[in-house]
């Protein structure tokens, strides 16, 4: 394994994230997965929306696009269509993907376009000071849920799977080695890959929910994670507060830019023979 510092824009460091923020651990996993995959740094585009998670694009030395809130996937789709040779990675937050960008997520998954999406899920809108997101568990506290969240969170991996994503996995910042493996498999997969990485926001989510400082929040991830196999034998009520880690989908389905290129090829040949 090489030194990942060569993928950082070191002149922007130290980064803006709070002490102990899980986003830095997840970004490290992304960089190690890219390094292990041996990708050409100049042929990788990393694209994000808006939020603390989405700040990641500012710190990495690839082709990068820091776009608008929820719109990383539309920008990524556009780029992939004109540069299908490029490896496209989307780094996004739970608010960015599951709230304002939810519609873009399901359609990118449905098309099975070759983009690797990593969601930094800290269960909250970190950047705007801790409002609840579609990923905040029921009864948990947030700036906008001072009496506990009334809503039910998405199971984002189930959502991506149902929408048609062809590689879907979940891990946590704590399980950084497993997370790196899954991101690597997502990068190697041809099609829409979706990796949910559970993160910690000690500043807002941790404080509001009295989860302690960053090391205690990582311990919380460890204690509350169960594998897909373990989850199978559990009652839904037992599973409620758990993080189910593992690979949910890994299947081969025609990829969108390839199908598109085939159409262009076919039309081109018809034009010539006319």
């Amino acid at each position: 394994m090489g030194d990942i510092h060569r993928y950082l824009r070191e002149y922007y460091m130290p980064h803006i994230w709070c002490p102990g923020c899980g986003h830095g651990i997840i970004l490290g996993a992304v960089l190690r997965a890219i390094d292990i995959a041996g990708l050409d740094q100049n042929n990788v585009a990393v694209i994000s929306g808006i939020g603390c998670a989405s700040r990641a694009t500012g710190y990495v030395d690839f082709c990068t696009l820091h776009t608008t809130h929820g719109r990383a996937l539309p920008f990524a789709t556009g780029l992939k269509m004109v540069r299908p040779d490029m490896k496209i990675v989307v780094l996004t937050g739970d608010g960015d993907t599951a709230a304002i960008g939810g519609n873009h997520l399901i359609h990118a998954a449905r098309r099975n376009i070759d983009i690797t999406t990593v969601v930094f899920n800290n269960s909250v809108y970190g950047m705007t000071s801790g409002q609840y997101s579609p990923m905040t568990p029921t009864s948990r506290f947030a700036t906008t849920a001072p009496y506990g969240n009334l809503e039910r969170p998405f199971d984002l991996c189930a959502l991506a799977s149902a929408a048609g994503a062809t590689y879907v996995a979940r891990s946590t910042a704590y399980h950084v080695r497993q997370l790196t493996t899954y991101i690597g498999r997502g990068l190697a997969h041809k099609g829409f890959s979706f990796i949910e990485a559970v993160s910690q926001c000690p500043t807002y989510y941790g404080r509001r929910n009295r989860l302690g400082a960053a090391p205690a929040m990582l311990e919380w991830q460890k204690r509350n994670s169960i594998s897909i196999e373990q989850a199978k034998d559990m009652e839904p009520a037992e599973r409620e507060d758990k993080i189910v880690t593992g690979e949910f989908v890994n299947q081969t389905v025609p990829e969108y830019t390839e199908v598109y290129a085939q159409l262009i090829g076919r039309l081109g040949r018809q034009g010539e023979s006319r």
């Binding site: 130290p14 994230w17 923020c21 830095g24 490290g28 399980h175 080695r177 990582l218």
Partner: peptide, 26 residues
């Protein structure tokens, strides 16, 4: 692997390095 700030670097590795992948910290 767990430093969120890229502030720690190993100056040498195990011969058959523990890869960054495959298993959890635990």
């Amino acid at each position: 692997l767990l430093c969120p700030d890229f502030a720690i670097t190993l100056t040498r590795r195990r011969a058959k390095g523990l890869s960054a992948t495959s298993t959890s910290v635990a």
